[in-house]
């Protein structure tokens, strides 16, 4: 079980989760996984209209969504959710975007939705549990800049643990000092954010 401590405890016994996928069978798979994790309430939706209705009427603790929906754009749905700041209880809840094959045009859309994390299908319980635990402990602040509202897309490297010089020659020493290389290009940043399949 790579990546998750088998003895770590998780308590979703009061959690209300919204699962959205255009395929009934992919949705069934997500439901089984989340029920296995012990989620108290699992709500499901297969389209944009149904999802919007649920988001307006209920308060959730986590959304897992495949944005490729038959009746509309799931990317826009997540983006609109992040902008729905006028009292919506769900505006800033954790959103995990799951995606099957992604067209090149979808990658940029995914990056700009304001979702907390991206997971490539096929989904396995191990990977989904890892991502839920990561998202729940994610300390990145939300930012609102231009049309983007969501977690800061820059992951910060904070060096080796305090009091340690690190275990690798390449570990940066503190203080870091001034940069000696040019900033990354937008293209390089985009490639880091692109959804990747995790091999366990």
């Amino acid at each position: 079980m790579s990546g998750v401590d088998p003895n770590a405890r998780i308590n979703l016994s009061k959690a209300s989760v919204l699962l959205v996928d255009g395929s009934q069978h992919s949705l069934d798979m997500l439901v089984q996984i989340m029920k296995g994790f012990g989620a108290a309430e699992v709500h499901r939706a297969q389209g944009v209209a149904e999802t919007e209705r649920l988001l307006k009427s209920k308060s959730f603790d986590l959304i897992v969504i495949d944005p490729n929906l038959a009746d509309g754009d799931g990317y826009a749905l997540v983006r609109d959710l992040r902008h729905s700041t006028n009292g919506s209880p769900n505006a800033f809840i954790p959103v995990i975007l799951v995606s099957g094959h992604a067209r090149a045009s979808d990658v940029a859309k995914a990056r700009d939705t304001g979702a907390n994390y991206f997971v490539a299908k096929p989904i396995t319980p191990n990977v989904l549990l890892q991502r839920i635990m990561f998202v729940s402990r994610d300390k990145r602040p939300f930012v609102e800049v231009g049309a983007y509202v969501g977690p800061d897309r820059r992951f910060k490297f904070e060096g080796p643990p305090v009091g340690s010089d690190g275990r690798r020659n390449s570990d940066l020493k503190s203080p870091l000092g001034t940069a000696d290389e040019p900033n990354m290009s937008q293209n390089e940043i985009d490639m880091m954010i692109k959804p990747q399949r995790v091999m366990l």
Binding site: M1, R9, I10, S13, M133
Partner: peptide, 10 residues
């Protein structure tokens, strides 16, 4: 929620 006592192991 995740950190509350109870629940199950991973």
């Amino acid at each position: 929620m995740l950190d509350q006592p109870g629940g199950v192991t991973a």
